[in-house]
Amino acid sequence: MVVSATTDGGQRKIRRNGSFGYVVPALLLIAFFFIIPVLMLLMRSVLEPTPGLQNYRELLGSTTYLRVFMNTFTVAGLVTVVAVVIGFPVAWLLAIMPDKWSRLVMAIIILSMWTNLLARTYAWMVLLQRTGVVNKMLINLGIIDKPLALVNNLVGVTIGMTYIMLPFVILPLIGILKSIDPAVLRAAALCGANKRQCFTRVLLPLSLPGIASGALMVFVMSLGYYVTPALLGGTSNMMLAELVAQFVQSLVNWGMGGAAALVLLVVTLVLYAVQLKFLNPNRAR
Protein backbone atom coordinates (compact mmCIF):
# COMPACT_ATOMS: atom_id res chain seq x y z
CA MET A 1 0.00 0.00 0.00
CA VAL A 2 2.93 2.28 0.65
CA VAL A 3 4.19 1.37 -2.77
CA SER A 4 1.09 2.36 -4.69
CA ALA A 5 0.93 5.67 -2.86
CA THR A 6 4.41 6.49 -4.13
CA THR A 7 3.37 6.59 -7.73
CA ASP A 8 0.10 8.25 -6.94
CA GLY A 9 1.71 11.23 -5.25
CA GLY A 10 -1.01 13.64 -4.27
CA GLN A 11 -3.92 12.97 -1.99
CA ARG A 12 -7.41 13.16 -3.36
CA LYS A 13 -9.97 14.89 -1.25
CA ILE A 14 -13.60 13.93 -1.06
CA ARG A 15 -15.51 17.15 -1.23
CA ARG A 16 -19.00 16.32 -2.41
CA ASN A 17 -21.44 16.12 0.45
CA GLY A 18 -23.24 12.85 0.93
CA SER A 19 -20.74 10.73 -0.94
CA PHE A 20 -18.87 9.90 2.25
CA GLY A 21 -21.15 6.92 2.91
CA TYR A 22 -19.83 5.11 -0.13
CA VAL A 23 -16.29 4.96 1.23
CA VAL A 24 -17.30 3.50 4.60
CA PRO A 25 -16.92 -0.13 3.47
CA ALA A 26 -13.46 0.62 2.14
CA LEU A 27 -12.49 2.39 5.33
CA LEU A 28 -13.78 -0.53 7.41
CA LEU A 29 -11.81 -2.92 5.24
CA ILE A 30 -8.63 -0.91 5.74
CA ALA A 31 -9.28 -0.62 9.48
CA PHE A 32 -9.97 -4.34 9.97
CA PHE A 33 -7.27 -5.77 7.78
CA PHE A 34 -4.49 -3.21 7.98
CA ILE A 35 -4.71 -0.77 10.86
CA ILE A 36 -6.00 -3.06 13.61
CA PRO A 37 -3.56 -5.92 12.88
CA VAL A 38 -0.63 -3.49 12.88
CA LEU A 39 -1.79 -2.04 16.18
CA MET A 40 -2.21 -5.54 17.62
CA LEU A 41 1.30 -6.40 16.51
CA LEU A 42 2.60 -3.22 18.13
CA MET A 43 0.74 -4.14 21.34
CA ARG A 44 2.16 -7.65 21.40
CA SER A 45 5.68 -6.36 20.79
CA VAL A 46 5.52 -4.23 23.93
CA LEU A 47 3.32 -6.55 26.03
CA GLU A 48 4.76 -10.04 25.45
CA PRO A 49 6.13 -11.81 27.32
CA THR A 50 5.96 -8.96 29.89
CA PRO A 51 5.06 -5.30 29.38
CA GLY A 52 8.05 -3.12 28.47
CA LEU A 53 10.54 -2.43 25.70
CA GLN A 54 12.74 -5.47 26.34
CA ASN A 55 11.91 -6.97 22.91
CA TYR A 56 13.25 -3.89 21.17
CA ARG A 57 16.25 -3.75 23.49
CA GLU A 58 17.13 -7.34 22.67
CA LEU A 59 16.54 -6.88 18.95
CA LEU A 60 18.68 -3.78 18.62
CA GLY A 61 21.25 -4.77 21.23
CA SER A 62 22.35 -8.24 20.14
CA THR A 63 25.04 -8.69 17.51
CA THR A 64 23.19 -11.66 15.96
CA TYR A 65 20.15 -9.54 15.20
CA LEU A 66 22.25 -6.57 14.17
CA ARG A 67 23.87 -8.83 11.58
CA VAL A 68 20.44 -9.63 10.24
CA PHE A 69 19.73 -5.92 9.96
CA MET A 70 23.09 -5.39 8.25
CA ASN A 71 22.39 -8.22 5.81
CA THR A 72 18.97 -6.79 5.06
CA PHE A 73 20.16 -3.24 4.42
CA THR A 74 23.22 -4.36 2.46
CA VAL A 75 21.20 -6.59 0.16
CA ALA A 76 18.37 -4.09 -0.24
CA GLY A 77 20.90 -1.33 -0.97
CA LEU A 78 22.86 -3.42 -3.44
CA VAL A 79 19.71 -4.63 -5.21
CA THR A 80 18.49 -1.05 -5.48
CA VAL A 81 21.76 0.25 -6.92
CA VAL A 82 22.20 -2.62 -9.37
CA ALA A 83 18.56 -2.49 -10.46
CA VAL A 84 18.82 1.26 -11.15
CA VAL A 85 22.13 0.87 -12.99
CA ILE A 86 20.73 -1.90 -15.19
CA GLY A 87 17.18 -0.54 -15.36
CA PHE A 88 18.00 3.01 -16.46
CA PRO A 89 19.52 2.13 -19.85
CA VAL A 90 16.70 -0.35 -20.48
CA ALA A 91 14.08 2.28 -19.67
CA TRP A 92 15.88 4.81 -21.91
CA LEU A 93 15.94 2.33 -24.76
CA LEU A 94 12.23 1.62 -24.29
CA ALA A 95 11.49 5.35 -24.17
CA ILE A 96 13.22 6.11 -27.49
CA MET A 97 12.31 2.90 -29.35
CA PRO A 98 9.50 2.96 -31.91
CA ASP A 99 6.23 2.20 -30.09
CA LYS A 100 5.75 -1.09 -31.89
CA TRP A 101 9.00 -2.52 -30.48
CA SER A 102 8.79 -0.96 -27.05
CA ARG A 103 5.34 -2.49 -26.55
CA LEU A 104 6.75 -5.92 -27.35
CA VAL A 105 9.65 -5.55 -24.92
CA MET A 106 7.30 -4.19 -22.24
CA ALA A 107 5.08 -7.22 -22.73
CA ILE A 108 8.08 -9.48 -22.15
CA ILE A 109 9.02 -7.62 -18.98
CA ILE A 110 5.47 -7.71 -17.65
CA LEU A 111 5.12 -11.38 -18.57
CA SER A 112 8.15 -12.13 -16.42
CA MET A 113 6.42 -10.35 -13.53
CA TRP A 114 3.38 -12.57 -13.96
CA THR A 115 5.44 -15.74 -13.85
CA ASN A 116 5.30 -17.48 -10.50
CA LEU A 117 7.83 -16.06 -8.08
CA LEU A 118 8.87 -19.49 -6.76
CA ALA A 119 9.45 -20.77 -10.27
CA ARG A 120 11.67 -17.83 -11.07
CA THR A 121 13.62 -18.18 -7.84
CA TYR A 122 14.17 -21.89 -8.35
CA ALA A 123 15.30 -21.15 -11.88
CA TRP A 124 18.02 -18.91 -10.49
CA MET A 125 19.02 -21.66 -8.07
CA VAL A 126 19.56 -23.99 -11.02
CA LEU A 127 21.41 -21.35 -13.04
CA LEU A 128 23.69 -20.24 -10.22
CA GLN A 129 24.62 -23.55 -8.56
CA ARG A 130 28.19 -24.90 -8.70
CA THR A 131 27.46 -26.98 -11.79
CA GLY A 132 24.96 -24.49 -13.17
CA VAL A 133 24.93 -22.76 -16.54
CA VAL A 134 26.56 -19.56 -15.30
CA ASN A 135 29.55 -21.28 -13.69
CA LYS A 136 29.99 -23.67 -16.62
CA MET A 137 29.97 -20.83 -19.08
CA LEU A 138 32.51 -18.78 -17.13
CA ILE A 139 34.81 -21.83 -16.83
CA ASN A 140 34.49 -22.67 -20.52
CA LEU A 141 35.28 -19.08 -21.44
CA GLY A 142 38.42 -19.35 -19.30
CA ILE A 143 37.43 -16.48 -17.04
CA ILE A 144 37.55 -18.62 -13.88
CA ASP A 145 39.19 -21.96 -12.94
CA LYS A 146 36.94 -23.12 -10.13
CA PRO A 147 33.18 -22.63 -9.90
CA LEU A 148 32.14 -19.56 -7.95
CA ALA A 149 29.84 -19.82 -4.93
CA LEU A 150 26.81 -18.01 -6.31
CA VAL A 151 24.02 -19.52 -4.23
CA ASN A 152 23.44 -19.96 -0.51
CA ASN A 153 25.02 -16.58 0.08
CA LEU A 154 24.16 -12.92 -0.32
CA VAL A 155 25.52 -12.85 -3.88
CA GLY A 156 22.78 -15.24 -4.96
CA VAL A 157 20.16 -13.27 -3.05
CA THR A 158 21.30 -10.02 -4.70
CA ILE A 159 21.25 -11.52 -8.20
CA GLY A 160 17.86 -13.16 -7.77
CA MET A 161 16.24 -10.15 -6.18
CA THR A 162 17.69 -7.68 -8.69
CA TYR A 163 16.07 -9.71 -11.44
CA ILE A 164 12.72 -9.67 -9.69
CA MET A 165 12.91 -5.95 -8.83
CA LEU A 166 14.06 -4.68 -12.25
CA PRO A 167 10.54 -4.02 -13.64
CA PHE A 168 9.77 -1.81 -10.64
CA VAL A 169 12.61 0.47 -11.69
CA ILE A 170 12.02 0.28 -15.41
CA LEU A 171 8.27 0.91 -15.53
CA PRO A 172 8.12 4.24 -13.61
CA LEU A 173 11.29 5.45 -15.35
CA ILE A 174 9.89 4.99 -18.85
CA GLY A 175 7.16 7.52 -18.17
CA ILE A 176 9.59 10.12 -16.87
CA LEU A 177 12.07 9.57 -19.69
CA LYS A 178 9.35 9.78 -22.32
CA SER A 179 8.29 13.15 -20.94
CA ILE A 180 11.77 14.60 -21.59
CA ASP A 181 11.75 16.47 -24.91
CA PRO A 182 14.61 15.23 -27.14
CA ALA A 183 15.01 18.84 -28.29
CA VAL A 184 16.30 19.66 -24.79
CA LEU A 185 19.13 17.17 -25.29
CA ARG A 186 19.82 18.60 -28.75
CA ALA A 187 20.02 22.05 -27.23
CA ALA A 188 22.50 20.74 -24.67
CA ALA A 189 24.61 19.24 -27.45
CA LEU A 190 24.72 22.53 -29.37
CA CYS A 191 25.66 24.30 -26.13
CA GLY A 192 28.81 22.18 -26.32
CA ALA A 193 27.93 19.25 -24.07
CA ASN A 194 29.31 15.90 -25.24
CA LYS A 195 27.32 12.70 -24.77
CA ARG A 196 28.56 12.12 -21.23
CA GLN A 197 27.83 15.72 -20.21
CA CYS A 198 24.37 15.57 -21.80
CA PHE A 199 23.74 12.53 -19.62
CA THR A 200 25.16 13.75 -16.31
CA ARG A 201 24.04 17.37 -16.55
CA VAL A 202 20.67 17.11 -18.26
CA LEU A 203 19.20 13.63 -18.64
CA LEU A 204 20.13 12.35 -15.19
CA PRO A 205 18.93 15.39 -13.21
CA LEU A 206 15.68 15.43 -15.19
CA SER A 207 15.02 11.74 -14.54
CA LEU A 208 15.94 11.92 -10.86
CA PRO A 209 12.34 11.93 -9.60
CA GLY A 210 11.67 8.74 -11.57
CA ILE A 211 14.88 7.12 -10.35
CA ALA A 212 14.05 8.08 -6.79
CA SER A 213 10.54 6.66 -6.81
CA GLY A 214 11.69 3.45 -8.51
CA ALA A 215 14.64 3.09 -6.14
CA LEU A 216 12.50 3.68 -3.08
CA MET A 217 9.96 1.13 -4.23
CA VAL A 218 12.68 -1.46 -4.81
CA PHE A 219 14.47 -0.70 -1.54
CA VAL A 220 11.30 -0.94 0.54
CA MET A 221 10.16 -4.13 -1.17
CA SER A 222 13.63 -5.63 -0.77
CA LEU A 223 13.74 -4.87 2.95
CA GLY A 224 10.76 -7.09 3.59
CA TYR A 225 11.35 -9.73 0.90
CA TYR A 226 11.03 -13.30 2.05
CA VAL A 227 10.94 -15.99 -0.64
CA THR A 228 14.09 -15.19 -2.60
CA PRO A 229 16.38 -14.66 0.42
CA ALA A 230 15.01 -17.82 2.00
CA LEU A 231 15.71 -19.94 -1.08
CA LEU A 232 18.89 -18.38 -2.46
CA GLY A 233 20.47 -17.09 0.72
CA GLY A 234 21.05 -20.28 2.68
CA THR A 235 20.63 -20.57 6.42
CA SER A 236 23.56 -18.52 7.62
CA ASN A 237 22.63 -15.29 5.80
CA MET A 238 19.31 -14.41 7.29
CA MET A 239 17.34 -11.31 6.32
CA LEU A 240 14.75 -9.48 8.36
CA ALA A 241 11.65 -11.11 6.88
CA GLU A 242 13.16 -14.54 7.52
CA LEU A 243 13.86 -13.49 11.11
CA VAL A 244 10.24 -12.46 11.58
CA ALA A 245 9.11 -15.78 10.13
CA GLN A 246 11.44 -17.66 12.43
CA PHE A 247 10.22 -15.81 15.51
CA VAL A 248 6.61 -16.45 14.68
CA GLN A 249 6.73 -19.94 13.13
CA SER A 250 9.59 -21.74 14.87
CA LEU A 251 9.92 -19.90 18.16
CA VAL A 252 6.30 -18.78 18.50
CA ASN A 253 7.65 -15.54 19.94
CA TRP A 254 5.07 -12.97 18.82
CA GLY A 255 6.67 -10.24 20.89
CA MET A 256 10.03 -10.41 19.08
CA GLY A 257 8.37 -11.04 15.72
CA GLY A 258 6.18 -8.00 16.17
CA ALA A 259 9.11 -5.86 17.24
CA ALA A 260 11.13 -6.88 14.15
CA ALA A 261 8.18 -6.24 11.84
CA LEU A 262 7.60 -2.82 13.36
CA VAL A 263 11.23 -1.82 13.02
CA LEU A 264 10.89 -2.65 9.33
CA LEU A 265 7.68 -0.64 9.06
CA VAL A 266 9.21 2.40 10.78
CA VAL A 267 12.25 2.34 8.47
CA THR A 268 9.94 2.14 5.46
CA LEU A 269 7.77 5.04 6.62
CA VAL A 270 10.79 7.21 7.35
CA LEU A 271 12.18 6.58 3.87
CA TYR A 272 8.82 7.36 2.33
CA ALA A 273 8.60 10.61 4.26
CA VAL A 274 12.10 11.56 3.10
CA GLN A 275 11.13 10.91 -0.48
CA LEU A 276 7.92 12.93 -0.20
CA LYS A 277 9.85 15.83 1.28
CA PHE A 278 12.74 16.01 -1.13
CA LEU A 279 11.94 14.12 -4.29
CA ASN A 280 8.23 14.42 -4.84
CA PRO A 281 7.84 13.84 -8.57
CA ASN A 282 4.74 16.03 -8.67
CA ARG A 283 6.60 18.97 -7.28
CA ALA A 284 9.83 18.62 -9.19
CA ARG A 285 8.20 18.71 -12.60
Binding site: D181, A183, V184, R186, A187, A188, A189, L190, C191, G192, A193, N194, Q197, V202, P205, L206, L208, A284, R285
Partner: peptide, 20 residues
Protein backbone atom coordinates in the same frame (compact mmCIF):
# COMPACT_ATOMS: atom_id res chain seq x y z
CA UNK B 1 32.54 17.90 -36.62
CA UNK B 2 29.96 16.60 -34.13
CA UNK B 3 27.22 18.98 -32.92
CA UNK B 4 28.84 19.74 -29.59
CA UNK B 5 32.06 20.89 -31.23
CA UNK B 6 30.50 23.04 -33.98
CA UNK B 7 30.21 26.05 -31.68
CA UNK B 8 26.91 26.98 -33.32
CA UNK B 9 24.04 28.62 -31.43
CA UNK B 10 20.46 27.51 -31.86
CA UNK B 11 17.01 28.52 -30.69
CA UNK B 12 14.37 25.84 -31.16
CA UNK B 13 10.68 25.87 -31.96
CA UNK B 14 9.84 24.23 -28.65
CA UNK B 15 10.97 25.46 -25.26
CA UNK B 16 14.29 23.80 -24.59
CA UNK B 17 15.48 25.47 -21.40
CA UNK B 18 16.74 22.96 -18.86
CA UNK B 19 13.83 22.80 -16.40
CA UNK B 20 15.99 21.79 -13.44
Amino acid sequence: TPSHKRNIGMVFQRYTLFPH
